[in-house]
């Protein structure tokens, strides 16, 4: 009872966070339920000969593209791909970045020095260039490949962040006390240090998710990401890019979907940062 009340107050006192979280929940739910919600098959081309582009109408609420495919259905299925890639790439990023930063910060000394200089080297290359170079090297990319590619190029900054936090946490008396009690390094790292550096990691993950969604859309737009005919928000924008004046609906709706999702994710990250920061200073 007490818990439910606190949860309610928590959200009521943070309308921005509530709105952002709610929109995300809706977006994710629609993506999951895409097969039930989509009126048509997202890759079916019913009018394969005429290739009719039709404006939004009752039959096709968001119109059809130049291959006569239903934009709404593609948008819903595209959401699955975009979110799937975004979320799993973020999971990869957070896992690798946290493990790396924790290892560097906890080891200290020469190990830390070498690990961090390596990160500096990676960070000197802009992420987009790095991704494009790797795509060129790799050639055709499966969804798993895309997830790994985006995940493994995004953790450098996080590892620095985690390392700095770990260095701070290592100096605290509760870590000294755990050591005095006879705790093993492993236990200290995972029971005492990691839980206390979690808030910035969560914030980074949320904001990183927005970045990855945009990056994936960009890659697909350039033709390096999700390959047609499978829909993703990025390659949908590309499909419509040459028809912008004639058939604005083909690009506009996936564009809006990206903007809405990324804004919701970033707003959530920002409000998390503020509220976690606040509870931190209170403690």
């Amino acid at each position: 009872m007490r818990n439910r009340a606190t949860v309610a107050t928590f959200f009521r006192s943070r309308p921005g966070m509530t709105l952002a979280a709610a929109s995300l929940v809706v977006i994710i739910a629609t993506a999951i339920a895409a097969p039930l919600l989509a009126p048509y098959d997202p890759v079916a081309q019913p009018d394969i000969v005429g290739g009719n582009i039709t404006a939004p109408s009752a039959a096709h609420p968001l119109g059809t593209d130049q291959f006569s495919r239903d934009v709404l259905s593609r948008l819903l299925f595209g959401a699955r791909v975009s979110l799937l890639v975004g979320i799993f790439a973020t999971v990869v990023t957070v896992t690798v970045g946290t493990a790396y930063g924790l290892a560097a910060g906890y080891s200290g000394g020469i190990v830390d020095e070498v690990m961090m200089r390596l990160v500096d080297a990676f960070m000197s290359i802009p992420r987009v260039l790095l991704v494009l170079a790797l795509v060129a090297l790799w050639g055709q990319m499966s969804t798993t490949g895309l997830i790994l590619l985006l995940g493994l190029t995004g953790w450098f900054q996080l590892s620095r962040l985690v390392r700095a936090e770990v260095l701070g946490a290592r100096q605290t008396d509760y870590v000294a006390s755990a050591r005095a009690l006879g705790a093993h390094d492993f236990r200290i790292a995972f029971r005492h240090v990691l839980p206390n550096v979690l808030p910035p990691i969560i914030v980074f993950a949320t904001i990183g998710l927005g970045n990855v969604i945009v990056l994936e859309a960009g890659l697909s737009y350039l033709g390096f990401g999700i390959q047609p005919p499978a829909p993703s928000w990025g390659n949908m924008i590309r499909d419509g890019s040459e028809l912008m004046t004639a058939a604005w609906w083909v690009s506009l709706f996936p564009g809006l979907a990206i903007v809405t999702t990324v804004m919701a994710v970033n707003a959530l990250g920002e409000s998390l940062r503020r509220s976690l920061g606040r509870s931190e200073s209170r403690a």
């Binding site: 605290t172 008396d173 509760y174 000294a176 006390s177 755990a178 050591r179 005095a180 009690l181 006879g182 705790a183 093993h184 029971r191 005492h192 839980p195 206390n196 979690l198 403690a283």
Partner: peptide, 23 residues
Amino acid sequence: LRKMRREMQIIFQDPFSSLNPRM
């Protein structure tokens, strides 16, 4: 060394930083 640590303990000056806030 870890076994030995049982015999000697410490009480810290700062009661705010000496307890893990997440436990």
